[in-house]
């Protein structure tokens, strides 16, 4: 038969020589876009939704204050009332000036005016603690803040 002849032939092996190149390209993409997870979350934060959002451009000019209930495993230590998290530590409002200063010295002098504080606040938190944080930020001269929010559909 005409078709039977083909059976005996072995298919040629697919060349995998270019596979490393492809993988390397992917690798470089992720290396460039990656931002390391800075700190472990100790408070649970579910940010609210809003429409008028502004993007925070330069990550090195942004410091983040998280406010929310401590996670279950930390509740025996810190209780269930909303707390602040600065870097990886649960802190109080009084720790904010030092936290800001520590971030400030890492930023080049000519860019220090552009430093912004991102407030990642859980939506169930009440305004009291936020007001205290705002007052402390004003006293420390950190006036540009950003209430972190998700795009509302």
């Amino acid at each position: 038969m005409k078709f039977a002849k083909k059976r005996g032939k072995t298919s040629p092996a697919i060349s995998t020589a270019s596979l490393p190149d492809i993988i390397f390209m992917l690798l470089f993409f992720f290396m460039v876009t990656t931002v390391m997870r800075s700190a472990e979350d100790k408070v649970s934060v579910s940010i609210p939704q809003a429409t008028e959002l502004t993007k925070l451009e330069k990550k090195s000019l942004v410091n983040t204050i998280m406010i929310g209930k401590p996670l279950k495993k930390y509740q025996s230590l810190y209780g269930t009332a909303p707390r602040l998290q600065l870097n990886d530590k649960i802190s109080t409002v009084d720790d904010i000036p030092l936290f800001l200063e520590k971030h400030r010295v890492k930023v080049p002098e000519n860019q220090r005016k552009k430093i912004k504080t991102s407030l990642k606040v859980d939506k169930d938190v009440t305004m009291g603690i936020i007001q205290d944080v705002k007052t402390q930020l004003r006293k420390s001269g950190q006036l540009a803040i950003n209430y972190s929010a998700r795009q509302k559909n």
């Binding site: 993988i23 925070l56 705002k134 950003n146 209430y147």
Partner: peptide, 29 residues
């Protein structure tokens, strides 16, 4: 390829692409 794969997987796991956005506010001095 295997080595590249390993590195790739590491960066895939460590990456956070979502950018920070929110409501910009300027506090009074």
């Amino acid at each position: 390829a295997d080595i590249a794969f390993l590195l790739l997987i590491f960066f895939l796991v460590a990456t956070t692409i979502q950018s920070d956005q929110g409501i910009m506010v300027k506090l009074p001095p």
